[in-house]
Design a protein around this nucleic acid. Structure first.
Lengths: 254, 254
DNA sequence: TCAAAAGTGTTTATTATACACCCATGG
DNA sequence: CCATGGGTGTATAATAAACACTTTTGA
C-alpha cells in the first residue's frame, strides 16, 4: 500500500504557519516521539515511512507530547493517528539527543522546501530530543493516514531497501531492528506482526525476515512447538498438491 | 563511604532562588538526565544515592542538559561531577515520562522542605521527562561530590536495601538492575565494576551480586575461561592457609 | 598432617544441529 | 504414480550441570 499527494513544489507556508501558532500551546517543547513501525508481508520485514512534503525524503512517523500527556500515551496516540489501529504492541528502545540531530544540511534544505522561509526560532527550528519506540503491527490491517502538512504520503519499505531518510532516522531504524531481533527470541512478540492464525512456514518466514538469515525448517518447527505457546488448529487446505499444513495460534500466558 | 551535611531544617531559599535564575538560561527545559550509579564492594552490588536536602529521602544523581550539549555528553558530565571519575561506562536504558512523575504528594512535601515556598511555574515546578542511564564504576575510586543546594550528602546502598526514594527513582533503579543483568552476560562489562586485576572468586561474587543468586564455583570458572577474555597473571598469595588463587585481567577485543 | 579454598577432570543431562524418513495432497 | 512441501524420528555434536578428585597453602 502506498499513497503520495501534493506533488506540487509550493512551500506550504500558510498551513505551516497555522501549525506553528498552535503547537507551542498544545505540546511540550524540545521533546518529540518517533516510532519505527514494523510490518510483515509474506516474507519481508517492512517499515512504514512518511514522505516529507515537497522533497524526495522520508521520515519516521513522529509527533509531539501534549503538555499533560504521559509519554507512552503520546506514542500510542501518534501511532493510532498514523495507522488507524488500537492495541498496538509498542516498545520504547532509545532516546536520541545529539544537539544538532535535526539541524544538518539535508534537513535544512528539506525544511526550506517544505516551509519556505520561516522566522528563526520558530517551533520547527528548536532542538528536539526524540524518544523512540518501535511498533509491531499487522500490516494488512493498517490504514495509514498522512500527517498534513508535513508529510504527503506513506509507503512500506523493505528493511534493507530503505529510501533516503531525514534527521538520524536511518540510525534509529537500525537500532530498532537490532532491538527487535533481541526481543523476538526472549519475549513472545512475533505474533503481533501476523494474522491470528498462521502456518509454521509463515512463522518461520517471519523469523527469517527479522533475523535476516535462513533457518532449518525441521528444527525451527520443533523449537517453536517445545516453547509451549502454540495451539494447533485445523489443517489448512490450500489446493496445493502436498500435505496440508496445520494452522497455529499463539496462546498467551496469563 | 558516606557523608551528610546540612543537618539543619532551614529551607535553602536563597541558594535555590539563585539557581532558579540561572538554570533556564543554561539548560534545556523539560528534560533531565538521571543516572543509576552501580558499584561493587567485595560481594555486594551497590547504588550511589544522594540525600535530598532537609528531608529523609534520597534521589538518583541527576542533572540537566545544556542547550548545545549532546545528551550522552550531559550524562557523562553529570556523572563526572558527582563521582570525580572520567571514562565511565554508561548505558542509556530508559526514558521516564509520566506527566506527573515529579509531582506526587511526597515530592511536593520534600520540595517544600528543601526550598520553602516558591512561586508557581518556577524551574523546579515544571514537568520533566528524564532520560535514564546506568553507570558502572569502581567504587573504591569514586569520590562523590554533593550537588548543593539540592542534595546534602551521598551514600552507597545495597541494591536490595534501598532507602526511601523520591519521584519514580525506585522504579528506575529496578529497571536499571534488570537491564544490567541482561547486559552482564551478553556484553563484557563486568570488569567496569572491579579493579583491573581480580581473582576468579571475586569475579564470581560480582556475578552473584548482580544476578542475586548463587553460582556453582567450578562451572563458573570454566565458563569464564572459555570466553577467552581473561588473561591469567601471577598468583595472589594472601597469607591464607590454602592454595593461592590466580589473578586475572580482562583483555578487550580490539 | 589438617582444613580450606583453588583448580582440573569426569560423568551425565540437556539442548542444538543435521539429515533421513515417511506422510498427505492434487494433478 | 509423481512431485512437493509438511511432519516426525534419530544420530551426533555442543553445551550445561553436578560433583569427584587433586593441588596448594599456612598453621
Amino acid at each position: 500500500m502506498s499513497s503520495i499527494k501534493n506533488a506540487t513544489d509550493q512551500p506550504l507556508a500558510s498551513e505551516i504557519k497555522e501549525y506553528l501558532k498552535t503547537a507551542p500551546e498544545i505540546y511540550l517543547a524540545g521533546v518529540s516521539v518517533d516510532t519505527v513501525i514494523f510490518g510483515f508481508d509474506n516474507d519481508k520485514l517492512h517499515v512504514l515511512l512518511l514522505r516529507f512534503s515537497n522533497t524526495p525524503y522520508y521520515t519516521l512517523a513522529g509527533g509531539y507530547i501534549e503538555k499533560e500527556e504521559d509519554l507512552d500515551h503520546a506514542a500510542l496516540r501518534i501511532l493510532s493517528e498514523r495507522t488507524g489501529l488500537k492495541n498496538i504492541y509498542l516498545e520504547q528502545f532509545y532516546t536520541s539527543g545529539k544537539h544538532n540531530r535535526t539541524n544538518t544540511g539535508i534537513t535544512k534544505y528539506a525544511l526550506k522546501k517544505l516551509t519556505g522561509i520561516l522566522p528563526p526560532g520558530n517551533w520547527l527550528d528548536q532542538r528536539f530530543i526524540s524518544v523512540c519506540y518501535y511498533a509491531l503491527v499487522d500490516e494488512t490491517k493498517v490504514e495509514p493516514k498522512i500527517q498534513e502538512p508535513f508529510t504527503s504520503g506513506f509507503k512500506w519499505f523493505e528493511i534493507n531497501k530503505l529510501p533516503k531518510l531525514l534527521f538520524d532516522h536511518k540510525f534509529i531504524i537500525e537500532k530498532a531492528l537490532s532491538r527487535l531481533q533481541a526481543d523476538l527470541d526472549t519475549k513472545l512478540i512475533g505474533f503481533n506482526l501476523m494474522n491470528e492464525t498462521f502456518t509454521m512456514n509463515q512463522l518461520q518466514k517471519l523469523y527469517e525476515a527479522v533475523h535476516q538469515m535462513k533457518l532449518v525448517r525441521t528444527n525451527f518447527q520443533r523449537k517453536m512447538l517445545t516453547l509451549g505457546v502454540l495451539e494447533r488448529l485445523e489443517k489448512q487446505y490450500n489446493g496445493k498438491s502436498h500435505k496440508a499444513p496445520y494452522l497455529y495460534r499463539f496462546i498467551l500466558a496469563k
